[in-house]
Amino acid sequence: MPFGHESRFMNLQLTQGRLLTLLQLSSPALPIGAYSYSEGIETLATQGTIATGSDLFHWLSQELNSGSIRLEAAILRWSYLAASQPDFEALARWNQWLSALRETAEMRSQSWQMGRSLLRLFADLEPELTEQLPGFARQGDCNFAIAYSLVAQAWQIPLEEAAIAFLHSWAANLISAAVRAVPLGQTEGQRLLQQLTAPIQTAHAEIAAMTEADLMACNWGVALASMQHEALYSRLFRS
């Protein structure tokens, strides 16, 4: 475990108030632009690689099982713990790691843009709490997973719930992108999200047990799809 004062924050209870705040933070309706990104799914839909609901289910479960969303979610946890200390140096380091881990220029811009938008929104909602955030968080290259952890920690949302909601929100956004890009029916999309409940819980438990030495993933499919997206002739999505 990279941090020593964890137990203090494990005692946070998910009160009704915090649950409602978490629902707001992880809602697809949060105005941070998540709907405009597909993380390569638009390319795969164009190529016919993702043509059905089961193709999409396979893709998202593989990502949860071995893909780079695991790295993001792991760093989100460590960043939350660093924010609780608070340890700004560790936060800046995790942010630099995430920028260096992003597969492509598009996915790096996506992460920075969503991070920036979330922190801007948070500053409007919570001007006083915002003053306690680290300086780099105001410089525009704060990755989304870091921004999310900062906001979740500032709002005293318990880590476990914040982290699993992050995965769920990620899956919901990509399903929504696929519903438009493939296209798939709305009901089909909701069915897939429901089917992902088990893979999300499994991934969440595995990620919670990860140390720095476990920070590895297989990103070949996502990297190629995202790189090719940058060169797609006609694009609905920004990644």
């Binding site: 690689t49 593989q62 071995s66 260096a100 993933a217 070949w220 499919g221």
Partner: peptide, 20 residues
Amino acid sequence: LDPQRLVGSKTLWQSPHGLN
């Protein structure tokens, strides 16, 4: 930073998410 881990399996081999 590119920390790859490819665990050999039928799924890794066949999946478009892995080796395709």
